[in-house]
Computed example of a mutant assay.
Amino acid sequence: MYIKNSTRLFAGLSEVEPDLNEDPKDRWATNGIDAEDFVYGKYDDHHTYFESDEKVSFWGSIAEDYAAIGPPTGFQGLISWLFLPAIAAGMYFNAPGEYLYIGAAIFTVIFCIIEMDKPSEPHNFEPQIYNMERGARDKLISDYNTMDIWDFNEKYGELWDFTVKKDDITKR
């Protein structure tokens, strides 16, 4: 009596392998959609596809991108727009190079002071701020966004500084 090797039967090693797809693959084939029906840009979400028929001019798209980044406004915007024309005018009128360097340094210092003086985001606050009563919180955030940072710290320093523990009940 001949007994077959039981491990061969249960492991499936005696079964026939399915055929492997050994055909060469088309590198540019799109799965599921024929090449004639495939709309390039729409199905592959390419950045050059515009779904609407509204065509924006080149300068219109530049203006939209510029407005989206939140450019400097007010005095800071004025000095930033006048910086390169001022340098060009100084070069045109043969101003000494030292004066141009000094002017660029003064511009950089003023621009950086203005940039550092204002908050980067209107909602960049400590988590404890959002636990306050809504009216008081909104007034605090509004003052933070409109006041000079030094005046704000002088006015709201005890509310604002969460690193100082207020354990003394008599001073409240």
Score class of each variant (00 low, 15 high):
residue 166 K to I: 13
residue 139 K to A: 07
residue 149 I to D: 07
residue 116 M to V: 11
residue 147 M to V: 05
residue 124 N to R: 10
residue 166 K to E: 11
residue 152 F to Y: 15
residue 128 Q to E: 15
residue 137 R to Q: 14
residue 118 K to C: 11
residue 130 Y to W: 12
residue 126 E to Y: 04
residue 152 F to W: 08
residue 145 N to I: 09
residue 130 Y to N: 04
residue 137 R to C: 05
residue 164 V to K: 09
residue 132 M to N: 02
residue 140 L to R: 04
residue 121 E to V: 08
residue 121 E to I: 13
residue 167 D to A: 06
residue 126 E to F: 10
residue 162 F to N: 00
residue 139 K to E: 05
residue 159 L to G: 01
residue 154 E to V: 11
residue 116 M to T: 10
residue 134 R to H: 06
residue 147 M to T: 05
residue 124 N to V: 01
residue 166 K to F: 03
residue 136 A to P: 00
residue 133 E to V: 01
residue 130 Y to R: 03
residue 139 K to Q: 08
residue 143 D to R: 08
residue 131 N to S: 09
residue 129 I to E: 02
residue 133 E to Q: 11
residue 116 M to K: 11
residue 151 D to A: 08
residue 124 N to L: 10
residue 127 P to H: 03
residue 139 K to L: 06
residue 162 F to R: 00
residue 141 I to Y: 02
residue 135 G to S: 13
residue 121 E to T: 08
residue 144 Y to G: 02
residue 149 I to Y: 07
residue 133 E to L: 00
residue 116 M to Q: 13
residue 153 N to W: 01
residue 133 E to A: 06
residue 135 G to M: 09
residue 117 D to I: 14
residue 141 I to R: 04
residue 152 F to M: 07
residue 132 M to G: 03
residue 154 E to D: 13
residue 165 K to W: 03
residue 139 K to F: 02
residue 165 K to A: 15
residue 151 D to G: 13
residue 160 W to D: 02
residue 150 W to Y: 11
residue 141 I to D: 01
residue 141 I to L: 08
residue 131 N to T: 09
residue 143 D to P: 01
residue 140 L to G: 04
residue 117 D to C: 13
residue 144 Y to P: 04
residue 157 G to H: 12
residue 122 P to Y: 04
residue 152 F to H: 02
residue 135 G to D: 14
residue 131 N to P: 00
residue 157 G to E: 09
residue 122 P to N: 14
residue 159 L to E: 08
residue 129 I to A: 01
residue 135 G to V: 09
residue 119 P to K: 13
residue 151 D to W: 03
residue 147 M to Q: 08
residue 116 M to F: 14
residue 164 V to E: 05
